[in-house]
Design a protein around this nucleic acid. Structure first.
Lengths: 217, 217
DNA sequence: CAGCCGATATTTACAACGTAAACATGAATG
DNA sequence: CATTCATGTTTACGTTGTAAATATCGGCTG
């Protein structure tokens, strides 16, 4: 590992600067741009290299294979999602229930506004082939905001029927399922409009929150 | 390579028999076998043709392109899912709430037992490129069983706070999200075991059901 | 400063893919 | 029997992921 060249620092981190400067993060951000600006969640590695101005084999000096680069881009998505959820959690809701509705709405809105990136974040080939610690950490970070909202709701006095972990799983399932159904247009036969995503989310989220926090029947 | 009129395929035996017998459904069932028996949800068209014993271009006489064949296999998955849900709905639950829990558990179990097929059924490339009426119809059919359980729950006397459509959307989002999170192992950091899928589903499903049906706060 | 070394980047190569186009086949119809 | 047209094959092209060999260059030791 050579020492860091303090000279040129880009928006990301500039660790090493042999030939290109910092090809690793340049590739990640090029791929990120392709995912966010265009609708291509399933881009090719060669195209990323092409846009970065390097040969199609250069990425292999920084990433094990194509999936490893995809995992980095997906991890950036989860970090962005976490920031979005944290911003929503900083609001001043009138109740814990509404606070949860705010976060749920922010989650679904993120997916609706960045469908390609969201699809990449949950792309099955990133979950099957190998384990990517960066991805898992970023995923857990985003999930933690959801669970935080639930715990704050419990602190308000409602009896707790389920373990925190199970509540988090239920909440995440709801918002994730709703997001994927909406952005993949799998509910067209229900006459669902993607423009009403926030309304659907608040209704469903608040219902689940009520059901989770209800006292023992 | 001349003809091979052997009696090697075609469980369904359908329409016409020019050269092969019924290549169209033979291809669908070959692909179905590849998806269910192996773990390959993302198979290649050439491999399907290879296993069916035809040239790699023969499928294009029956399907527009690769996605069209995938859509047929996905539609079969939704029909199978519908049957599974209907079987679960034929039980004798003690309450509407438990009936919904039964169906939700059956839904998630289907996904957990057929992860490759489930992933294909919700593959983004089937939702983006084109519209497949067969797929949409099969999807709606499976969803109808879920909505039926909800409507029966309402008939038991609970006040209805949300439109039926919105309730169906919420219920489907919950079970679909939970299924995908479980089979893609996206919740490993929550120490979730896929063996406890049914328990998670019943807890979450019953909580949502309670929240949906609750009287006005 | 010379010279090597190892990290970085390129070139070349290969097998596999999706699919377009041209061609072959053979059952049904006149 | 000859024609036709749906069906199936052959060939071909451009693209992909990636392995192997090669070239380039900065930083280290002498």
């Amino acid at each position: 590992m050579p020492k860091s060249k303090v000279s040129s620092a880009a928006p990301p981190r500039a660790t090493k600067g042999y030939h290109h400067g910092d090809l690793r993060s340049a590739l990640i951000h090029t791929a990120l741009g392709m995912v966010t600006e265009e609708g291509a969640w399933d881009f090719t590695l060669r195209e990323v290299a092409r846009r970065a101005g390097v040969s199609h084999m250069a990425p292999y000096n920084h990433f094990e294979d194509k999936s490893a680069l995809l995992a980095e881009v997906a991890a950036l998505g989860f970090e962005s999602l976490r920031q979005t959820l944290e911003a929503a959690a900083r609001g001043q809701p009138r109740s814990a229930r509404q606070a949860f509705g705010d976060i749920a709405a922010a989650y679904v809105r993120f997916g609706v506004e960045h469908p390609s990136h969201y699809r990449l974040m949950f792309s099955p080939e990133l979950a099957e082939k190998a384990r990517y610690p960066v991805l898992e950490a970023a995923t857990a970070g985003a999930c933690a905001v959801l669970t935080g909202a639930l715990e704050r709701g419990q602190a308000s006095g409602d009896a707790r029927r389920m373990a925190r972990r199970d509540q988090a799983l239920a909440a995440w399932s709801l918002v994730h399922g709703l997001t994927t159904l909406l952005i993949d247009q799998r509910v067209s036969f229900l006459r669902v409009s993607i423009g009403d995503a926030e309304q659907y989310t608040r209704q469903a989220g608040i219902a689940l929150f009520r059901g989770l926090g209800a006292k023992k029947a």
